[in-house]
Design a protein around this nucleic acid. Sequence first.
DNA 1: CCTTTGTATCGACCGTTATCGAATCAAGGA
DNA 2: TCCTTGATTCGATAACGGTCGATACAAAGG
Lengths: 120, 120
Amino acid sequence: MDLAAVVGCCSPLVAEPLTGEQSAELARVFKAMGDPVRLRLLSLIASHAGGEACVCDLTDVFDLTGPTISHHLKVLREAGLISGERRGTWIYYRVQPDVLRRLSAVLVPGEATQNAAVAQ
Amino acid sequence: MDLAAVVGCCSPLVAEPLTGEQSAELARVFKAMGDPVRLRLLSLIASHAGGEACVCDLTDVFDLTGPTISHHLKVLREAGLISGERRGTWIYYRVQPDVLRRLSAVLVPGEATQNAAVAQ
DNA sequence: CCTTTGTATCGACCGTTATCGAATCAAGGA
DNA sequence: TCCTTGATTCGATAACGGTCGATACAAAGG
């Protein structure tokens, strides 16, 4: 999953146009965030105590079945936005803060530009 | 289109979970950016000289018909990400920088937090 | 073992959406 | 007024994506 690397190599939108490949990779991440359930899952995980949440914490928030939540978590995982780790009975998810930071840097110029340092 | 206002009223993801309504409104914007063509259109407009581009500048970049480009521009427009203005023969599009800045502020804590000032 | 509980995968249904060609509208010249 | 050019809207179609029930897997306890 070198998606994070691709996300990290883009200049801000206003600086120069994205190439076809860059826009394709970035769109995959934004598309993953383009669903209300997934965006809320992301915020629930990100803001949960300890920076992680198990699936059991997430399922009860929604009027959705387990398989559906599992599907959305998979989409977020494959987009590189979260990572999951099994510890005993439960699986804990946590966000990948670097990806969020780099996305933020793509949207606006001048901010979070340790991006440039990482890219080198 | 008070979408920009809704986008502006959200704390960073890591600070507190989004409500159902907040995630729904934010997801509409991220979904609009979740397509390679639209993301590239956005970057072409944002980085074009003068901060604006006419549709004729955008169509030739893609192997897509005019109606398809027009459709994607409409999606971006209805998401509040761009605005169009006709001047004579051509229609010029420009980005709404506030929306991008506020999206960026949702993704990471502490940055672009003139967000809070705007919200008041 | 077998059962229970937590989570993921599979297959199917169905609404949504990206795309096109054709038609339409808007502005400027001949 | 008509024709040309730029851009949108409309209608149709094919592909995608969110949701579910059924099933399968993984860990822990009887």
